[in-house]
């Protein structure tokens, strides 16, 4: 037993040493709260930006847009927010937590219908078929992609009919997982996400105008201590350099 105590004390000591290492920094550290699906593309952009601006370190806080919204509402120290959906940004704007002038619609995306690789599904109309037992979308109330999916299915007059087949998921990734494992026959996800998965195929894109434009808004958080740097980074995200990177990953850049 004595050994355990020695061990634990040792751990405390080690940890104390590690925790003590966080010395003062002269660099500006920007915390960007971004939707988790943006992590690859934003990671690449971070490298480019940091090379250009040696005085700035970009730190991403990645989670679902809803969780990020919660954190910002509770005063978490974020500088810039890139949401995957409009409603989260609207909620923050409503509470006066963002710098309204900095709000921009950064990216656009497209909703697609996906199915397993061997699926015989050819389009949205096939969803009513008995062979399609389960369909997954993001939860319409919380996941932006789910909201768009609801709009599309409603405009196609399929929503009510398909209700019993629906499995609402907590994010787009979960929808893709279900489709990949074959537990649902079809799902509605963003084109950028569908492109990553090798085990699903894109059956059809949502008809133009069937949902509100899919946008990823961004805005500077009001409580930021680095407003200038945050705005500079936001401007960079709309620059031509950034556009190239975004397009590489399948996003549409809105200007």
């Amino acid at each position: 037993m004595k050994k355990i105590f020695v061990f634990l004390t040792l751990m405390l000591f080690v940890v104390g040493a590690v925790a003590g290492c966080g010395g003062a920094k002269e660099k500006v550290e920007l915390t960007v709260s971004a939707a988790a699906s943006l992590q690859d593309v934003t990671g690449e952009l971070k490298e480019i930006y940091e090379k250009q601006h040696s005085g700035v370190t970009i730190t991403y806080n990645l989670a679902s847009s809803g969780a990020l919204q919660q954190q910002i509402e509770q005063g978490a120290p974020a500088d810039l927010f890139i949401s995957a959906g409009k409603s989260q940004m609207d909620a923050l704007a409503g509470k006066g937590l963002i710098v309204d002038s900095s709000r921009k619609d950064l990216l656009g995306n497209e909703l697609v219908l996906v199915a397993g690789k061997d699926s015989a599904l050819t389009g949205f109309e096939g969803l009513t078929d008995a062979s399609v037992k389960r369909i997954s979308t993001g939860d319409p109330d919380t996941v932006p992609a789910g909201q768009y999916a609801k709009e599309t299915l409603t405009s196609l007059k399929l929503w009510d009919q398909l209700q019993p087949k629906m499995v609402p998921a907590k994010d787009v990734r979960q929808v893709l997982t279900y489709v990949e494992t074959g537990d649902v026959e079809a799902g509605l996800v963003y084109r950028t996400d569908a492109a990553i998965s090798k085990d699903v195929k894109i059956v059809a894109a949502a008809p133009a105008g069937s949902n509100k434009p899919i946008v990823y808004p961004m805005a500077v958080i009001k409580s930021t201590k680095n407003q200038k740097e945050a705005e500079a980074f936001a401007a960079f995200l709309q620059s031509d350099d950034a556009v190239k990177v975004f397009e590489k990953y399948g996003f549409k850049v809105l200007k």
Binding site: T31, S33, A36, S37, Q39, D40, G43, T59, Y60, N61, L62, A63, A67, Q70, Q71, A76, D171, R173, L176, T177, E180, D193, I196, S197
Partner: peptide, 28 residues
Amino acid sequence: TAMLAGITRLKTETLSVAIFLNMSIGDI
């Protein structure tokens, strides 16, 4: 952890967070 400490690569990245991050970009 994700809520309180945030999910930041190479800063607050525990193994669970790493799993989440990789799953959310589709790298199952």
